[in-house]
Write a protein that binds this DNA or RNA. Structure first.
Lengths: 233, 233
DNA sequence: TTGCAGAAACCGACCGACCGGTTAGTCTGT
DNA sequence: ACAGACTAACCGGTCGGTCGGTTTCTGCAA
């Protein structure tokens, strides 16, 4: 029952969803994790059967069990890998940035880029499904929840630092703001289509503008003082 | 195969999840829809069995099928009812408001209040699960999607009107903004606990402030001109 | 007030399909 | 020879749903 190691920087980690193993992870295994992740995201964990996954990689269910211990293990590995990516791409880089405004920009940009990234032939890694971990039993669920909490705290503390130095209106509840911000980011996974009009970069910049200035803020300090009248109809 | 009617104003609609029936809908039926909704939200549609639902209302599965035609019917009725509420509480009132800024406020407030409302002994009505309608076949899924689209268009058009009159920065993509806004609202269903610190009203006002002014907008037009320096530190 | 028919409410037993997972054994490359 | 990759057949169990029957409620004629 050792806690599953996650790849350290310099680990030569292979692109899509590698299990914690030594180097030449078999192509099959990669394929299995990639297809399983795609199906879990597409149809949901409960609605995806092991036969579905087996069929997607062109082996029988028994063949699939040659590589994988259980369905729950499969989910745990996938979600853990998604979390690893989140920490490698977002959390650790963010912690290296001292200025909270810059840190916030980095978090938004990197997280949005992380979501919807297409790796190999797999669909987008999850983070979304990380919310759908009800299929995980006791200790493993707690492990994922702890890392989600860690990420949330990073965001909230960053907003807290901004509020402390006066960059955020004191009337705003930074805990609620942190939820809102994360909600906006994660929501992109549900509406953005890779083939759509908006690229990942576009969306990242749009979201940054959205959360920074808000939707109703007029562009520069408006030159005409008329703008401040109470509800002009 | 007539399209299921939804209650018109003045219909004397009974509180939690009534099927389309004449007045004295049986208590059992109300209980069934309420418990089913609670379980679907709690564990997900696929992970909830008909036996679970039957047990929750203290009858056998066969007894349950006396009231309900199929599991999919149950889901469809619940989701349709959730949509009805969204339209009654948010869309139709919003359409009666001419000013787009006021309309936006109404949408945010009423939608946040609608989510997490507790009716009778049922949990919060869904709108969340309206995203989880993969269990619905062809035509019925399309029917729900059409109404989701209608709501989305209302939000986007409202933002469009605000942008047209200069209240929203021209650089912002209002389609992305609409997604962001809806994401923030729906996300509340995933993190807000009724017993928690923040009331529904609190959250509604916080979100309104969040999307209006953004997080990084300093309070009033800062009196010291020093504030406009490029990235201090 | 009673008797009773019919409808609504409900149950125990059961169905075929499919679930996650296992077994025993067969290929194939080294 | 042997190990990894893989399969056909199968396991106990649960799924959504059905069946035939019994109880309980309700309206109404005598």
């Amino acid at each position: 029952m050792t806690t599953p190691r996650r790849p350290k920087p310099g680990d030569l980690v292979i692109d899509p969803l590698p299990p914690a193993r030594t180097h030449p992870v078999s192509e099959r295994l990669r394929q299995i994790y990639a297809e399983a992740a795609r199906l879990f995201v597409e149809k949901g964990y409960d609605a995806t059967s092991m036969s579905d996954i087996a069929q997607a990689v062109n082996i029988t269910k028994a063949g699939l069990y040659h590589f994988v211990k259980s369905k729950e293990d499969l989910l745990m590995t996938i979600v853990t890998h998604g979390m690893d990516q989140l920490f490698d791409d977002v959390v650790e880089p963010a912690r290296a940035v001292a200025d909270p405004a810059e840190r916030l920009s980095l978090i938004v940009r990197n997280h949005v880029m992380n979501i919807g990234r297409v790796r190999g032939r797999s669909g987008n890694p999850l983070t979304i499904i990380a919310d759908d971990v009800s299929g995980l039993g006791g200790e493993r669920k707690r492990q994922i929840d702890r890392r989600k909490r860690e990420y949330f705290d990073l965001v909230r503390d960053t907003l807290g630092a901004l509020q402390a130095r006066g960059d955020i209106d004191g009337a705003l509840d930074i805990t609620v703001c942190a939820h809102n911000l994360i909600g906006v980011i994660l929501w992109t996974a549900r509406w953005r289509r890779p083939e759509g009009r908006a690229s990942r970069d576009d969306v990242a910049e749009q979201i940054l503008a959205f959360v920074s200035r808000g939707v109703l803020a007029r562009r520069p300090p408006d030159t005409s003082t008329l703008a401040n009248l109470p509800t002009d109809r």
